[in-house]
Design a protein around this nucleic acid. Structure first.
Lengths: 339, 339
DNA sequence: AAGCTAGCCGGGAACGATTGCATAGATTTT
DNA sequence: AAAATCTATGCAATCGTTCCCGGCTAGCTT
């Protein structure tokens, strides 16, 4: 079995002490140039690599950051992860990705596990089920650096990176209004998620600006963000069973948008004849869809990058940080309209 | 800062030695029931968790496995990852996911990093660029357990989990032939990948069975598996510029299939009027596509599960394993045909 | 009553690396 | 010439855990 070489091996082979070898490799001025040369050459020869586990134990840090998302199969998150990796790797950090599948239990288990595994910090996007963040609170209070992105916890004081959900939702709703829709429904994820609240607000503002009434009946929540087909189907069916059937749906959420299109197709509800649709999505194949989907796109890659930069800054800060920022990035409305 | 409790803390608080505490927690028979009870209760009270880093150092294992895929944004891989996680977590293993983005350099860097970080084993799907696997060879010889899935290295003796690529490719090609296509092109990933070779073989067999000639001109390789739009576009343009223009394309690869559809749309080549298409894909939204794509679907989730089970068996085996299996799972052809 | 065993527990080394302190010899300062 | 400084190296503690080894106290046997 696979026995990597250690400082001790080098020391024994060269007749030196481990401390001398360690210092020689770290290029301290205390070691004579000749000794350094001998050590470096031998280390090179046997391909010595310091044991990161021993280092973690000693230094109480692991040069790795944990990422918590609901699913990597979500376009928004996979793009954000690419952004996270691009920064992390350039700064010498490992990235450990975990998925919650929108479950509070899995989120908690994953995060506890990451924390005990001594990640140096956390990049968190909450699961749809999560409303109690007290376990995160306690980790945060104990000094574990964390940065939220996309789905943030309002009661935890740290950096937060989000998209301009209100404006994105406003534009998507406005688009439907300008197409002549009068009864616009809103299909969204679980009600306590920050993104749901903000997108609902944008939706309301658009209605108000154009003098359309807001109706609670038109807002349908999917507590698991469309993880289950039935959840989405039920919501759509309920909307379509209303007395005043909606003539449009604005959907908040990547998975939900795609899921809703599938449901509509299966229910043989045609777009745009029977209903109009816009939604949040970062899919890069929306152009292939029929019916087309006008979508709000978030700068996922950049959000991942910024979140990682801020997290690393927190981790490497010598003094505790008490000033936190909430960075808001602009979304873009991508109009797709078959004429 | 965040100081988790240790064995020493418990020992000091209870007036015992660390060894006694350690044994009490691990429920050794040497410790009296009363002492055990006291220790367990106190440990529970202060929420003691053994430090996994210290354990890793001592036990020379980390209870974590490394996964190497080209991209998590690929439907096949994200499903396989879900399968991997489902098994790994139930067996108490961590999963560390890394992406190669089809680059040999990134693959090598990631794997070296994982190995030095003491993952207990590796689940590998090679990048499109990789043809030299000697660095993997050497890790394997040094005893690092690894299992390949999907894109395997033929010259490394270990477990391999693949789909029946030949049969899948055969069926997809046969489907085109039965639709009446005579000049079927084949768009595939880089030529040295195992999946490319097998899918090409299935394609050839279908042609042969139905008495169609095989033409090298009809086979186009994308060395980066369609990572870059231009690569795919060039290949499609070359095919369409042939004197005997193909009347169908069979595409090997998830990303490539989607990419090719985008290219065809942009080039205003219509399906099925101008050309017919089938491809490998695990996307779950193909039903929303227009034009429709008849696709070969791989049992990605199961492949991930099986690979992980086999890897854990290798890791936990007390004796070196010399008998390796190649498990082949069946694909399914999902016909989508607008009449 | 002396010896034996079993039960229970503590001491200390080990895993691999870093680092403050000690030390020996060489060199410079006063 | 004695003292101070500097150079190059080694010793040992540390991080948190496990485990080998040995010690002590009962209780039991003969």
């Amino acid at each position: 079995m696979f026995e990597p070489s250690t400082l001790k091996d080098i020391a024994k082979a060269l007749g030196l002490s481990t401390s001398t070898v360690s210092r020689a490799l770290r290029d301290t001025h205390e070691i004579s140039p000749e000794t350094k040369k001998i050590v470096l050459e031998y280390a090179e020869k046997i391909n010595y690599r310091p044991n990161p586990i021993a280092l973690s134990l000693k230094e109480r840090r692991s040069k790795s950051i944990g990422v918590i998302v609901s699913e990597v199969a979500n376009h928004y998150f996979s793009q954000a992860i690419n952004g996270i990796e691009s920064i992390a790797y350039s700064r010498g950090y490992h990235v450990i990705i975990t998925q919650t599948h929108e479950s509070y239990e899995r989120e908690k288990a994953n995060i506890q596990h990451l924390a005990s595994r001594s990640v140096d910090g956390l990049l968190v996007s909450l699961s749809a089920e999560t409303s109690d963040t007290s376990y995160l609170q306690s980790l945060h209070k104990r000094g574990l650096p964390m940065v939220f992105f996309d789905r943030v916890a309002d009661d935890i004081e740290t950096h937060k990176i989000i998209a301009n959900n209100e404006k994105g939702a406003f534009e998507a709703t406005e688009f439907l209004i300008k197409k002549g829709c009068k009864r616009i429904a809103h299909l969204t994820s679980s009600s306590h998620l920050s993104i749901s609240i903000e997108r609902l607000e944008g939706y309301k503002q658009a209605l108000e600006k154009y003098g359309l009434p807001f109706k609670q009946d038109y807002v349908k929540y999917c507590p698991h963000g469309g993880m289950f087909y039935e959840e989405t189907e039920t919501a759509v069916k309920e909307l379509m069973a209303l007395q005043e059937k909606p003539d449009a749906i604005f959907i908040a959420g990547d998975r939900l948008s795609i899921g809703c299109l599938v449901v509509l197709k299966n229910l043989r509800i045609n777009i745009p004849e029977d209903i109009n649709v816009t939604g949040f999505s970062n899919s890069d194949v929306l152009d292939l869809f029929n019916p087309p989907l006008t979508s709000v796109r978030q700068p996922a890659f950049e959000m991942g990058q910024i979140a990682t930069e801020k997290l690393i800054k927190l981790i490497e800060s010598k003094y505790p940080v008490y000033e936190f920022e909430k960075e808001v990035l602009e979304t873009s409305l991508q109009v797709r309209d078959d004429l």
